[in-house]
């Protein structure tokens, strides 16, 4: 290859876990680094080169005015912009503020609230700029990240399933925790990607990968009621790391109104 494609890694409000996935690719790291030119990745390198970048990986949600401006600049200097993780694709756990008065929350945490400058809402990157590809998960699955980068380099569509966790659960041969143990599980409405970890570890899925394509949350809501869940419990279940994604948002608000 004449010149290797450049990659930038950017962070907004987040825990750093998704970009850490890149460094957690122990077996692939040097190969990935050989195929691309990592031009901007402050968590890993003090050599921070200016854009434009062929591919930008964006972690985190928008929660400040400064960040709302910064994402515009990043969009302008990015060929492809890929959002990674629940914060970037759905606003993250910090989107729980979207149902409350943020100034009340700030007063609950900080001694001197006047110094805190934050927006009322935590929002996904796609609410601010066009996004070429979204990679779900809290955190993302590192092999999906390698797949996305490889696909972009090869100019093909990445193979990222949009069916539910139940499919992976069956394929894994795990016992259905909802049928066998009456444990509430978001698997039927959550996008695959984790490999059905929670059911395999004897607990219900809590929705890290966000809503699957055309998720039937109303049906799951009724099933949760059959299992004896209160409307507050159901609202909390949908109001997790992907709370502000449209299907889960509607589902939690529906449950709350009951």
């Amino acid at each position: 290859m004449a010149s290797k494609p450049t990659i930038g890694v950017f962070k907004f409000a987040s825990c750093d876990g998704c970009q850490l996935s890149l460094l957690d690719c122990e077996d692939e790291l040097l190969a990935v680094a050989g195929a691309v030119d990592i031009a901007y990745f402050p968590e890993a390198s003090s050599n921070m080169r200016k854009g434009p970048y062929d591919v930008s990986l964006v972690e985190g949600s928008i929660t400040t005015h400064h960040d709302a401006e910064r994402i515009q600049k990043i969009r302008r200097m990015s060929g492809k912009l890929v959002t990674i993780g629940a914060c970037a694709t759905a606003g993250g756990i910090q989107a729980l503020r979207n149902w409350q008065q943020t100034d009340v929350m700030v007063r609950a945490v900080y001694a001197n609230p006047a110094f805190i400058k934050t927006l009322e809402m935590s929002t996904a990157i796609a609410e601010h700029v066009p996004v070429d590809l979204e990679l779900r998960g809290c955190p993302i699955q590192k092999y999906q990240l390698v797949e996305v980068v490889s696909a972009l380099l090869a100019g093909r569509r990445p193979n990222i399933p949009t069916y539910s966790v139940c499919m992976e659960c069956k394929r894994r041969g795990a016992t259905c925790v909802m049928v066998a143990h009456g444990e509430p599980c978001l698997g039927p409405v959550t996008q695959a990607g984790c490999g059905a970890l929670c059911p395999a570890y004897n607990r219900g899925c809590y929705g890290c990968f966000g809503p699957m394509e055309s998720a039937n949350t109303a049906s799951l809501d009724s099933q949760f009621r059959v299992l004896g869940q209160s409307h507050q419990e159901i609202a909390r279940a949908f109001r997790g790391f992907n709370a502000w994604s449209w299907p889960f948002r509607k589902a939690s608000e529906f449950a709350e109104k009951q």
């Binding site: 929660t63 400040t64 729980l96 503020r97 409350q100 943020t102 929350m105 609950a108």
Partner: peptide, 13 residues
């Protein structure tokens, strides 16, 4: 950016 964890833990199980 502040993420306000202590605030939204209130009322969770």
């Amino acid at each position: 950016p502040p993420r306000l964890f202590e605030a939204f833990l209130q009322g969770r199980s």
